[in-house]
Amino acid sequence: MNVPIKPQSQTMIFRYGDEQITFERVKRPQATGKVLIKVHPDCRVIVSAPEGAESEAVLSAVKKRGRWIYEQLRDFRKQLEFTTPRQYISGESHYYLGKQYLLKVIEAPEQVQGVKLLRGKLDVSVKTKSAEKVKELLTDWYKARAKETFAKRLDAMLEQALWVEERPVLRILTMQTQWGSCSPNGRITLNPHLVKAPRECIDYVILHELCHIAEHNHSERFYRLMSQVMPKWEKTKERLDGMAFVIAN
């Protein structure tokens, strides 16, 4: 099983005034009667509802928050107008362990090319300025940091996962749709982009995959186990979902 970057969903639609708003209905893992609505910075509207809730009831709950959803979308759309694709030039903002760092590209023909994290900045030294080279160096740096960080966090999380008898094999692999996955034989694969997220989000994904070693499906037992080792995991998951747009690339 895996932790998707975007949750599995059912697409639904409602109207607010003259606008047709699409939202994704996802299963709310813990069975409560509440419907949770989240508008993400990339303008995705995610509605978490109990699996047994009727579609009409979910639509009704969403329509009651129609004005709030509309206003959130309007504000995020304004922000997106000023968002440009990464150009890998000085002044850009890049994430690492949940914090933003300014990118500083240094042209230094005599220096060894590489990345250093110094005083709130990501300094990238290149022989000649090239967006492709800066991207390549940053990608390699993130992968190296991911390998080191994930290994440490896996060791820390294994202290809570008492059902795991042997340390799982850990693999780092860039994935388009998943933060992490667990194979049937217990090998854990993590997305290097996850190292851009806060430590608690990294811990959540690792614990999620460790729980799959005990329970391969998203059963009630799986969620009970998850809640035992990380009681507020749903809030952490929401935080990670909200960051997906800015860190998953």
Rank of each mutant, 00 (worst) to 15 (best):
D140F: 15
L122W: 03
K143M: 08
Y95E: 01
D75I: 10
G114M: 04
V134K: 02
E165V: 08
P29N: 03
L97Y: 11
D123F: 01
F76A: 06
A53W: 08
D123N: 03
C43K: 06
E81F: 10
R153A: 04
A156E: 05
K127E: 08
V105N: 01
E107F: 07
V62W: 00
K135E: 09
K104F: 08
K129D: 09
E107C: 12
P41A: 11
V164H: 01
V126Q: 00
S90E: 04
E81N: 13
R67G: 04
K152V: 10
A53N: 12
L154Y: 03
P41V: 05
E71V: 10
K38W: 08
T32R: 09
L138F: 11
S55H: 15
V45D: 00
Q87G: 13
L80S: 15
R77E: 12
E110V: 13
V62S: 01
T32S: 07
S130E: 10
P85V: 05
W68A: 10
A144Y: 15
E136A: 14
S93K: 14
E136S: 12
G120Y: 00
Y101L: 04
A146P: 04
Y70K: 11
S55F: 12
K127L: 04
H40N: 14
F76M: 09
A144G: 15
Y101N: 00
A61I: 04
S55T: 14
E132M: 06
V164R: 00
T32A: 12
M157H: 02
D75T: 02
K147T: 06
D140Y: 13
E81K: 13
Y142T: 02
L118C: 08
P50N: 10
V58S: 02
V112Q: 15
P29R: 03
A151M: 12
E166M: 10
T139G: 09
M157I: 02
G114K: 04
A108K: 09
Y88L: 03
P29V: 11
I106L: 06
I46A: 02
D42W: 03
R65V: 15
C43G: 10
L59K: 01
S90G: 01
I37T: 05
R77P: 10
E92L: 09
K133V: 08
L118G: 02
P85K: 01
E81Q: 09
V124K: 01
P29D: 01
G52W: 09
E136N: 11
L73D: 01
K63V: 11
R77V: 12
L137Y: 02
L102M: 02
R145N: 05
Y101A: 04
L154F: 09
I46Y: 00
Y101H: 01
T128D: 11
K116A: 13
R28V: 00
K129R: 15
G33K: 04
A131S: 06
A53G: 14
L162I: 07
V126N: 00
E92Q: 06
D75P: 05
A108Q: 11
G66K: 04
Q111V: 06
E51H: 12
V112P: 13
E51M: 15
H40E: 08
Q87I: 13
V35G: 02
